[in-house]
Nucleic acid binder design. Sequence first.
RNA 1: GGAGUUGGCCAGACAGUCGCUCUGAAUCUUGCAUUCAGGGAGGAAAGUCCGGGCUCCACAGGACAGAGUGCCAGGUAACGCCUGGGGGGCGUGAGCCUACGGAAAGUGCAGCAGAAAAUAAACCGCCGAAAGGUAAGGGUGAAAUGGUGCGGUAAGAGCGCACCGCGUGUUCUGGUAACAGACGCGGCUAGGUAAACCCCACUCGGAGCAAGACCAAAUAGGGGAACAUUAUGUGUGGUCCGCACUGUUCCCGGGUAGGUUGCUUGAGGUGUGCGGUGACGCACAUCCCAGAUGAAUGACUGUUCACGACAGAACCCGGCUUAUCGGCCAACUCCCACU
RNA 2: GCCCCGGUAGCUCAGCUGGAUAGAGCGUCCCCCUCCUAAGGGGAAGGCCAGAGGUUCGAAUCCUCUUCGGGGCA
Length: 118
Amino acid sequence: MCRARLQKHAKLLKAVEFDRVFDKSVRSSDRYFTVLASPNELTYPRLGLAISKRRVRLAVGRNRLKRLVRENFRLTELECCADYVVMAGPQAAHANNRELLSALEKHWKILKQKCASF
RNA sequence: GGAGUUGGCCAGACAGUCGCUCUGAAUCUUGCAUUCAGGGAGGAAAGUCCGGGCUCCACAGGACAGAGUGCCAGGUAACGCCUGGGGGGCGUGAGCCUACGGAAAGUGCAGCAGAAAAUAAACCGCCGAAAGGUAAGGGUGAAAUGGUGCGGUAAGAGCGCACCGCGUGUUCUGGUAACAGACGCGGCUAGGUAAACCCCACUCGGAGCAAGACCAAAUAGGGGAACAUUAUGUGUGGUCCGCACUGUUCCCGGGUAGGUUGCUUGAGGUGUGCGGUGACGCACAUCCCAGAUGAAUGACUGUUCACGACAGAACCCGGCUUAUCGGCCAACUCCCACU
RNA sequence: GCCCCGGUAGCUCAGCUGGAUAGAGCGUCCCCCUCCUAAGGGGAAGGCCAGAGGUUCGAAUCCUCUUCGGGGCA
């Protein structure tokens, strides 16, 4: 089910899908990221990215962040099938890759527990 | 060897594993499914400061308004860009910088200081008995009505002369020209400011790929109300003309969500030869080199080095400007040492 | 992607047809008034006019380039 791949159907593409997550979700945040999760009816988790220009000024930085999150999402075996939206925090632009990856690991764990009790 | 100037090039490399996007081929479970092969960010992709292509508005037309450019010649699809030349300024030099038309078309402006700030006036001074003459001297100021010397005079003054500066010429020489030089003339007038209004010359229609074209679930192929009667309205920015279309306004509905296309072969790159001082042009050969659309190039590991800056295509080109760790190459200049 | 605006005292704004002291209100500090406070009156401090370069004798003002902030597009 959760193979180490990331294809188009595993991404949130439409405004409607994003609205659903923003509307009703559990969240976990620190100074690097805010991650929202909302259980879906599908058999696989989906990822949406919301990296605003306000948080990360340069296009290079935004692309780097998105790649990093996608890569980590792909490699992590998420057991509960939900729609996730990752938003950049205030310190995300200044952190290095190692810090960001460890922060993401933490968020997945926290959300796994929260989703179970949802 | 040191210091410097100009021009050009590169933007870590290699290997492995996993992953993304596009193209081609194969396989069948016809799904954007799997496998294989190949392509996959920049010198600035940036700022959006200019110029074009392309698309729609009329085939992009006329007048005014408005905006821009501004020594000369050339290059170019075009430019506010580039090349060569001229004038001016800086540097010992190689070189660099330069919004560099017109103030004898007109209008405006110049605080404080200063006698006086734009038109010939006179506060002190100088001369003179006085009337008056004078602009040589005078603190100022960004700017004060040519400068130096000699003569001259009551004192002075282009009043006269020499040199320099300035202006000027149906003049001559060189140059396509800007301009430079020579010669003659003028005793000197015509001060500054045009990134103040302005004048002159040249250029510019408007908008922008969210342009534009097509498909299209649901709903609908219309319904209702009011007003006006040949001038008005609409058509992308201002006014008039001209052109095209034709009732107008309001309410409900629709025009929507979504998808496809535009979307990459182009004023293209590379090499050779020829023309040109050069920008560049011409000919031949050869290559296909990103096309995403919630937005693709990354992560991890190893080796190595100078330990990697600024930074991410979004319709496409030509420039300009700004950011930037460093490295390499070529030509030239100055200084020191040696031969 | 494209097209427009703006940046002046701690805050909100004037000044932007160049001329020398950059002004107003609120706020801050000091004094007066009051038994004390508020209100009121008087006074003071606080600005490299977002940054850099240019035009000019002189720039907050004109021109160019950066930087930061805001708005619009069917």
